[in-house]
């Protein structure tokens, strides 16, 4: 019965957000370290239990002092010392050397209640984006982690991590994704009412394709037509908080929307991106995400909200 129940848990070990299904060098290292620890712990546990059972089964009788001392000193002092020292060595050896950074791509991630400000830095280029992380397979990447308000924690289980974002500090993390694919990351430190809705999609591009993505992300908004949706976006003050490269660059309180239409999720993993989700979001963000820092637009007629949603979807 117990075994059956445990079996049910097995599928949870794979998938886009699993440290047991690694897609990055660091995650692999942590994965094998984890395996080693589990096997080691299982062995020790079996030994201990064996000894205990043996002790119960054996007929009581007198032991020589020598035998008793060997057992106590050997099992209680020498074995743990050697065991722990070995673990420490393995542990210390797997600590990465971050004194210099091998990465020429730096990704600045700034935690906000409850979303992620993202900026890609390569050479002199700095490209502003949000709520999604794109990575090149096989290339080391340096993450520069900061926060705007409270403590958040940046965790991409399949790629490696996690690392806290502390107010007033800059934390670094260097990771090398290996397997192209789409993964999921999340905030791993309780940060307020919508902590559970502070996630993000991770896209690991096959070697070579990342640069194409970066070029696309650098370019201004793809739809420059003077549509009704665009007019309404400007009229209703959305631009006071959201930048759309090439169209309006004023406020920066909320996520950059230059390429929002190509994101996989809406509002940091709150819902899959769709026309319906966008409409619901603009109408009443707090209904989807309590505590979100965006005002509700319940006073706008539905056609206007739909027009804005279509305009945003066209920004790929």
């Amino acid at each position: 019965m117990v075994a059956l129940l445990l079996l049910l848990l097995v599928p949870a070990c794979g998938g886009p957000q699993s440290a047991l299904d690694p897609a990055g060098l660091e995650a692999e290292r942590i994965g094998s370290f984890f395996l080693f620890m589990v096997l080691g712990a299982a062995t020790i546990w079996a030994l201990l239990m064996g000894t205990a059972i043996l002790a119960i089964l054996r007929r009581p009788g007198r032991h020589t002092e020598r035998f008793a001392n060997t057992l106590i000193i050997g099992g209680g002092v020498i074995f743990p010392t050697i065991g722990l020292a070995a673990l420490l060595t393995v542990g210390l050896r797997s600590l990465p050397d971050w004194s210099g950074s091998p990465a020429d791509l730096r990704i600045h991630v700034h935690g906000e209640q409850f979303w992620w400000r993202v900026a890609y830095e390569r050479g002199d280029e700095r490209i502003v984006s949000a709520n999604e992380i794109h990575l090149p397979a096989g290339e080391p990447v340096e993450f520069v982690l900061t926060t705007a308000d409270v403590i958040h924690s940046f965790w991409m289980p399949a790629i490696g991590g996690k690392m806290d974002m502390m107010p007033g500090r800059v934390n670094r993390l260097i990771l090398t994704p290996t397997t192209p694919g789409i993964y999921r990351g999340a905030c791993a430190e309780f940060c307020g009412p919508s902590h559970a809705l502070m996630a993000f999609a991770i896209v690991v591009h096959p070697p070579g394709e990342f640069d194409d993505w970066l070029v696309a992300e650098t370019s201004p908004a793809s739809n420059s037509a003077e549509t009704e949706g665009r007019r309404l976006f400007l009229a209703n003050g959305c631009a006071a908080c959201h930048r759309i490269g090439g169209i309006v660059e004023l406020g920066e309180v909320g996520p950059d929307l230059t390429h929002v239409g190509s994101r996989r999720t809406l509002a940091a993993g709150t819902a899959p991106m769709s026309r319906q989700a966008l409409t619901d979001w603009i109408t009443d963000p707090q209904a989807l995400k309590p505590g979100a820092g965006m005002p509700a637009y319940t006073m706008l007629p539905e056609e206007e909200i739909l027009a804005i949603a279509d305009f945003l979807l066209s920004l790929e």
Binding site: A235, A240, V248, G251
Partner: peptide, 26 residues
């Protein structure tokens, strides 16, 4: 007025009170 104070969540005033933005109710 132009960019607000993003680190304190103050929005750009011109995003609502600008010549190219805003509604007659603003």
């Amino acid at each position: 007025a132009q960019i607000g104070i993003p680190e304190r969540n103050v929005a750009s005033c011109l995003g609502c009170h600008g010549p190219k933005t805003g509604r007659p109710e603003f």
